[in-house]
Design a protein around this nucleic acid. Structure first.
Length: 485
RNA sequence: GGCCCGUUGGUCAAGUGGUUAAGACUCCGCCCUCUCACGGCGGCAUCACGAGUUCGAAUCUCGUACGGGUCACCA
């Protein structure tokens, strides 16, 4: 049988990182079995409708590289894929259930229904008892016809068994057994004739021939009800894969208000989509080997359900950053330049040796958005304190630095062929001539060139990046500054 | 409160009765080094707790604690 999986988000305008991970796992399970990955949008909640929200879903999945085979925009043989367009389809299935004796019409008003007593959130007194079944369960056909004829509204409820247990197997959690008397007669069809989420889900998944259901483990406790439905219809029960959640910390789920919880937030912060996808895959799944770096194609082969975790995973920004940095390091210099040169040009605003700068920048870049502040000293020499020239380990201080700069200035000025090699030669020639530690010359020169204690690259690289004119000018400024004291 | 699920270092985690309890990120040392990175080496765990089964338990059983989920005419 062909494997078919589905990702069925509600369009909230927001692709949560946990949702992205669910989509990823769903995609991987389909693809590693040569199956189909279906996108179904559960947009029946008009109250929560957000403009453009469906596009966020499309865009996020596309950026992540998760190509769906069937969906609202693509069509397919099992449509419509927009749940709002399937609304008229569920009623007859509910009727079928009533005939079968697995569902019944309930005429109780919201507050009267035996099993819809309000849950007291503040205290612990009034929890409803599913065992107190609604009296409508026992209405005769005649009574039902009489009440419907009188124009009474009703909902259709699932008729749960009064005793026994339901057992099902989840691929991650194993066998789970639930006593039937803890299951309540959930509403299948609302009084307006529309299906509830749970009911629509079961029908849709069956009609779309979904074989593997991947979803968050908050559905673990309602799965027995789903299965009772499948059983009543005589349908095959799908394979269940319930995923543990992605958390912000030990006891809070990642939420929108954290500001970096969505895929798009992370991309805006400068993360590469591939790095996010890779890291996300590892939040709740462990590879068989020690390698942690995978392309999406590699994940299709490497991923396996038995490596999935039962416990929630805390999202770690530090590790994501480390992943992003590694992805950046693995780029070719050309790829790195394609992405960083526009940022550099914008930050620097003058002609510099971008190739040299990128070479020293690449191993130091965790996020492309960090680049601007790394190169800020290039645009303009900061007004630094001369104490910057003091470095115990480098054995430098302002006096020594002044001497160094005075000696190096004419040598650099005389250099006609300004390359990394010639600059390097000059600097190390001076070191030898003066008979000092490398740091004495190099620290002094680098400080004069950058005016800040931390820079990408050293003295020689900065000379090349800044060019002869600018380098000479900055050393002159250094001499002037040091001469003031 | 009922039911369900979970618990290996700061984080992700490997581990399925006998291991020096992998690996990655972070952190801390050291090496490399003109700074910072990169790279290299090393350090950081009485496996939530308590009983039990066993010659032997992170691994099996039970209990306790803590955390999460669910119990809507929301999805």
């Amino acid at each position: 049988m062909k494997v078919r999986t589905r990702f069925a988000p509600s369009p909230t305008g927001y692709m949560h990182i946990g949702n992205l991970r669910t989509a990823l796992y769903t995609y991987l399970i389909a693809k590693q079995n040569g199956g189909e990955f279906i996108l179904r949008i559960e947009d029946t909640d008009r109250a929560r409708y957000v403009d453009g929200a469906v596009d966020v879903i499309y865009r996020s999945l596309e950026l992540a590289g998760l190509k769906w085979d069937e969906g609202p925009d693509k069509g397919g043989d099992y449509g419509p894929y927009l749940q709002s367009e399937r609304m008229q389809l569920y009623g007859r299935y509910a009727l079928q259930l009533i005939e079968h004796g697995s569902a019944y019409r309930c005429f109780c008003a919201h507050s009267d229904a035996a099993d819809t007593q309000s849950v007291d959130l503040s205290g612990s007194e009034t929890f409803h008892n599913p065992a107190d079944k609604c009296p409508c369960r026992n209405l005769t056909d005649a009574q039902v016809s009489e009440r419907t004829a009188a124009g009474e509204t009703y909902v259709i409820r699932q008729k749960m068994p009064l005793d026994g247990t339901v057992v099902f197997t989840d691929e991650i959690y194993g066998e789970i057994e639930t006593p039937c008397d803890t299951l309540d007669d959930q509403v299948l069809i609302k009084s307006d004739g529309m299906p509830t989420y749970n009911f629509a889900n079961v029908i849709d998944d069956h009609l779309m021939e979904i074989t593997h259901i991947v979803r968050g483990n908050e559905y673990l406790s309602s799965t027995p009800k789903y299965n009772l439905l499948y059983k009543a219809f005589g349908w095959d029960i799908p394979v269940y894969i319930h995923c543990a959640h992605v958390m912000k910390d030990k006891n809070a789920k990642l939420s929108k208000r954290d500001g970096h919880a969505s895929f798009e937030d992370l991309l805006a912060l400068g993360f590469l989509p591939e790095a996010v996808v890779n890291y996300t895959a590892l939040l709740g799944w462990a590879p068989k080997t020690e390698n942690e770096f995978f392309t999406l194609e590699e994940l299709v082969n490497e991923f396996s359900i038995d490596g999935m975790s039962k416990s929630p995973a805390i999202f770690d920004m530090m590790k994501l950053k480390a992943f992003n940095a590694e992805y950046i390091r693995r780029m070719s210099l050309e790829q790195f330049m394609d992405k960083s040169v526009p940022i550099i040009k914008n930050a620097v605003g003058k002609e510099i040796d971008c190739a040299m700068l990128c070479k020293v920048l690449q191993p130091r870049t965790e996020l492309f958005t960090d680049i601007a502040q790394q190169v800020d000293f290039i645009a303009e020499l900061p007004d630094y304190d001369i104490e910057l020239y003091t470095h115990k380990k480098m054995k430098t201080n302002p006096e020594i630095a002044l001497d160094v700069l005075k000696r190096v200035l004419p040598l650099l000025q005389a250099n006609e062929n300004w390359t990394e090699e010639t600059v390097h030669e000059i600097l190390f020639g001076l070191i030898e001539e003066m008979g000092v530690k490398n740091g004495v010359v190099l620290w002094s020169v680098r400080t004069a060139l950058a005016g800040k204690p931390v820079t990408p690259g050293g003295a020689a690289e900065l000379c090349v990046i800044l060019g002869k004119e600018e380098s000479v000018e900055r050393i002159r400024k250094g001499i002037f500054k040091l001469s003031q004291f």
